[in-house]
């Protein structure tokens, strides 16, 4: 399967530049911008051409309910896809690097992991003291 990162403006290629700096690349992740001069049809065409090669896709969208999100949801009719909105870069790195996406087919499992990882990684510094527990009775 693949993850398609998509969003308004240069959200997708912006995320791609962050991935590049931090990790080099993540296998099976594709980045599709929806820029001001593009129509919804053009975006859909980009999605369809990827779906032709790999029908199992998780769409990673900038905003719930935005055009890239809605356009992705429309593909649900004919393909085995999952669509998430509002997930963050940390979740993409974690899920993309911990799972061999090539062999995964359960798109909803991956979508769920992206949402869970995002929720676990949102915070204001210093509000919740992190746990640095040192219980060495069972290991270090």
């Amino acid at each position: 399967m693949k993850i398609i990162v998509t969003g308004h403006g240069n959200f997708a290629t912006g995320i791609e530049s962050t991935v590049k700096l931090l990790a080099g690349s993540i296998k099976n992740v594709t980045y599709i911008d929806f820029t001001a001069e593009m129509t919804e049809e053009e975006l859909a065409t980009n999605f369809t051409s990827i779906l032709k090669k790999d029908p199992n896709i998780v769409f990673f969208c900038d905003l719930v309910g935005g055009t890239p999100y809605k356009q992705a949801v429309l593909e649900k009719e004919n393909h085995n896809i999952a669509v998430v909105g509002g997930c963050n870069i940390g979740s993409l790195l974690e899920v993309g690097l911990q799972n061999d996406l090539t062999s995964v087919t359960n798109v909803h499992k991956i979508a769920e992991k992206l949402v869970t990882a995002t929720k676990a990684s949102v915070q204001e510094f210093g509000i919740q003291k992190p746990k640095i527990n040192e219980d060495i009775s069972n290991g270090i």
């Binding site: 990684s121 510094f125 527990n133």
Partner: peptide, 18 residues
């Protein structure tokens, strides 16, 4: 330093020691 690094570890769901 510990609090900063522990925040990263916690969001990744791993333990950390200094």
């Amino acid at each position: 330093q510990q609090e900063l690094m522990a925040a990263t570890a916690e969001t990744s769901g791993v333990g950390i020691r200094f």
